[in-house]
Design a protein around this nucleic acid. Sequence first.
DNA 1: CTGAAAGCGCTTACAG
DNA 2: CTGAAAGCGCTTACAG
Lengths: 346, 346
Amino acid sequence: MAVTLKDIAAEAGVSLMTVSNVVNGKQARVSAATRERILRIVKDRGYVPSASARSLAARSSRLVGLLVPAEGEASLTIDPHTVEVVGMLERELRRLDYHLMLRGIARRKEITEALKSWNLDGAVLLGFQDAEIDRLDAGAIGGVALVAMDSYSANPLALEVRSDDFGGAELAVRHLVALGHRRIAFAGPGFSATGVVRKRYEGYRKVLAENGIEVDDALVTTVEIGHDEGLAYGRRLARERPDVTAVFTTADILAIGVIEGLAAEGRSVPGDVSVIGYDNADIAAYVTPKLTTVAQDLPGKAAEAVRLMMDRLAGKERPERATALGVRLVERGTAAPPPRRGGSGR
Amino acid sequence: MAVTLKDIAAEAGVSLMTVSNVVNGKQARVSAATRERILRIVKDRGYVPSASARSLAARSSRLVGLLVPAEGEASLTIDPHTVEVVGMLERELRRLDYHLMLRGIARRKEITEALKSWNLDGAVLLGFQDAEIDRLDAGAIGGVALVAMDSYSANPLALEVRSDDFGGAELAVRHLVALGHRRIAFAGPGFSATGVVRKRYEGYRKVLAENGIEVDDALVTTVEIGHDEGLAYGRRLARERPDVTAVFTTADILAIGVIEGLAAEGRSVPGDVSVIGYDNADIAAYVTPKLTTVAQDLPGKAAEAVRLMMDRLAGKERPERATALGVRLVERGTAAPPPRRGGSGR
DNA sequence: CTGAAAGCGCTTACAG
DNA sequence: CTGAAAGCGCTTACAG
């Protein structure tokens, strides 16, 4: 039913090989005349090469996996910030004539299964914890070009692409300090889960130290990313730590929850408390007041991921160090000078 | 390098065929004893069947395409509402041992190319306009099970999955009428683009008619979906139609923009004007006041899409009529009785 | 510049 | 219950 190389070859009166060479653009090997003729037939008949046959016969499948954690029976959780990266990844890959296979990973061995089964040329690991990247072992990965997004794993098997998390935190906390804040809280998921959070925490500490502000560990709180979690934390903070005048948060959705929690306890943002988010998700511009946040270079991240993967596929050496994509502070309405209090100051 | 059927067969001292039968669970064909032995070897050696070889040799690729429009050089635009469906689709398919290929479609013929190239068993068309679905032609589609999401196309080549758009609009507008509104505007993208909008418009008209409210075409406005578009429309509405006390919108993001535009012109929601959105996106719960909106049954939509596709793949008859997934009104803070005016009433 | 042969890793009838 | 043969649609060396 479907038209094959053989059909084209028969119609053109040449061998399979010649058609194959033409279709694959190996110009030097075929005369211009027969190339034209073959190309015309290919077009007329609507010939499209079989990717599975190619994948089987050649070394390359031109298929890249997009692997995303999926807990048990749950469906993939792709946050808005991530989904943008997915779209950009797809476009970059498509430009290069690669295809993207989206796969949820419930158990660890599914990573290797996906790689083997479809003979993937490469894979992007999106949203995995550093510890999971660490555990990848060479035997199972084979020659697949693996890119771990937002990872600080030391596993040499994976190429790493990430933003300048340390710098992003510096930007946010410096802004807060410049505004006059001294009691600045830090809220984000546990450090062990992702190096991203640790780096941001380190950036936070550095700026405090630079400014002679003592780090108060009671102000550093583990809060899972989510609106409700942020809300609960915001309420607690308002009740238990009225001295805190600013919060730096590792995600916009968390920040938005915090603001709502603060408000629920009668504290206004940014009048009483300043809040800074992270990611500059669309939503940051829709809430009231609009969220001050740290923006990542998402297109840069996607492009870099694909570039690294292609370099690796082309046999290039792994770069000495992971590049950190740029980051910038987006000032909107949730950061302002601290309120003047009854002179407690510090 | 990779272990193949042949390797397993050699180690087990049986033929390729027998291993194939075992791996594919054709129980009746192999004795329990040899099956156990083969399974053990498969596991020990970490054998994973080659999907491309299978796809080539068998009729089925067990691959489903997720086709999403991508204009020119742009990357896919997957709105938050859509991305949830993607995650759920992936999960359902994964359960059934299918894989999902994500593909942006810039030019129409890329649809057929994707189908042919990867020998897809099925494809889900997400976000295409009805007119594009209409244009699909049988030759190119072959036996692929096509599911068009949110489509009202009459093309028999595609199975259709959609929400009860008519009913959703009824719910929203009835709520508004019950609250006492008579001048209710409708804002959404052009009707021709998607039947979804048309159905919602029809639901809107029906409820007005039911309640003896004359439909004022000047109150029906084409507004592309987007925050800024909504904002601009909200401002215009506030300036030009102060008599309007309620707006029904075909998307949450649009509604949020409208609210902001109204506010920019000094009109409060829901004090002066009520606004109802559509989709119940996460964001609806984060804005202030929280958005009243129509929720779709997203898990149901994804499950239905997969069910229809599998039925089709199993050779079942196409159902008589497309099922419309349920819909419900989520009452939050943006719909209230109209303000009492200087007695204009109507 | 062009082609005949072998093989990629499977499945599908068909025999026994 | 088990197997030998053919073939899916391509690409890769290797010849000419």
